[in-house]
């Protein structure tokens, strides 16, 4: 085990290392190879940060718009995924009927699905939310279900020996047991829902970080493009961190769960 202090030190070394390599690479491209496209291919890292600081409120506004829809969709999708898992665990028949379609649903590329949804609802915000939910529900559902089906027999027998009802069994055993699995699914889904929301931006939204990405790419404002890329990355990381913090709060007992890839 590495101590917290040591881990912090390792992280600092990594950050400094990446910064230096990046700056060196940018210098090499611009100063040594004299590449005319250098500032598009690999701009200096410090200039990207400078652009972010200069356009901070603008980027934050765009990111906030996209992120809020992603969160809304994420919550909806997680809710649907959770309930679906419960229903599937309650009834083998439902599981048998629903599961193949769940997997099939993930074969439809979001890129193709997004315009269809947009055409149907004709509203950018609703589309963002629906697509984010669509992306979220599958990994959540699959992981939750794998938690519910892996409750050991002895734990169930204990409930049985006390003649516990279905409701008690679920609230006192099945669901709490499956929480670590649920969070494994949520951790996969969170950055994915952000990605989905950005993707919908690009379909012709008037605002959002995806629009920033697209416009700056086409209009040739390279600095802004890279600033948007960094903002998007930060959104993904933040979404993951939020789930991580919630996980620590809701699961104070220790349990290692191997993450199942949702899609």
């Amino acid at each position: 085990m590495i101590s917290k202090k040591e881990r912090l030190r390792v992280n600092i070394v990594w950050v400094i290392g990446i910064f230096l390599v990046w700056e060196l690479g940018a210098f090499f491209l611009a100063g040594v190879l004299n590449d005319p496209m250098a500032d598009a291919k690999l701009p200096y890292l410090h200039t990207i940060f400078w652009v972010i600081i200069q356009n901070f409120s603008e980027l934050l506004g765009a990111a906030g718009l996209t992120f809020s829809r992603a969160i809304l969709g994420f919550i909806l999708g997680a809710g649907v995924g959770f309930l679906l898992a419960i229903v599937m665990s309650l009834s083998k028949t439902v599981e048998k009927i629903a599961f193949p379609y769940l997997i099939f649903s993930q074969m439809v590329p979001v890129l193709g699905l997004a315009p269809i949804i947009f055409n149907l609802v004709r509203d950018m915000n609703t589309s963002r939310t629906i697509i984010a939910a669509y992306i979220t529900f599958f990994p959540v559902s699959v992981n939750m279900l794998s938690g519910l089906t892996s409750v050991d027999n002895e734990k169930k027998e204990l409930m049985y020996s006390y003649a516990a009802g279905k409701k008690s069994i679920y609230f006192k055993l099945m669901i709490p047991y499956s929480l670590p699995y649920l969070f494994a699914g949520l951790k996969i889904a969170a950055p994915m829902s952000v990605t989905a929301s950005i993707l919908v931006d690009m379909l012709g939204s008037s605002g959002g970080i995806g629009v920033k990405l697209l416009y700056s790419l086409y209009s040739g404002t390279k600095d802004m493009f890279w600033a948007s890329v960094f903002t998007s990355a930060a959104m993904g990381i933040i979404s993951y961190s939020i789930i991580l913090i919630l996980e620590k709060k809701f699961i104070p007992w220790k349990k290692e769960v191997v993450q199942k890839e949702g899609a």
Binding site: E154, Y162, P176, Y177
Partner: peptide, 27 residues
């Protein structure tokens, strides 16, 4: 019946107090 299994079969997510409490909640 009170049953004690070969494994303790405690519920990981409950503190010791709440583990002992569980059957009484069911009652």
């Amino acid at each position: 019946y009170g049953i004690v299994f070969q494994n303790p079969v405690l519920y990981d997510w409950r503190t010791i107090r709440r583990n002992v409490c569980m059957p009484m909640e069911l009652m």
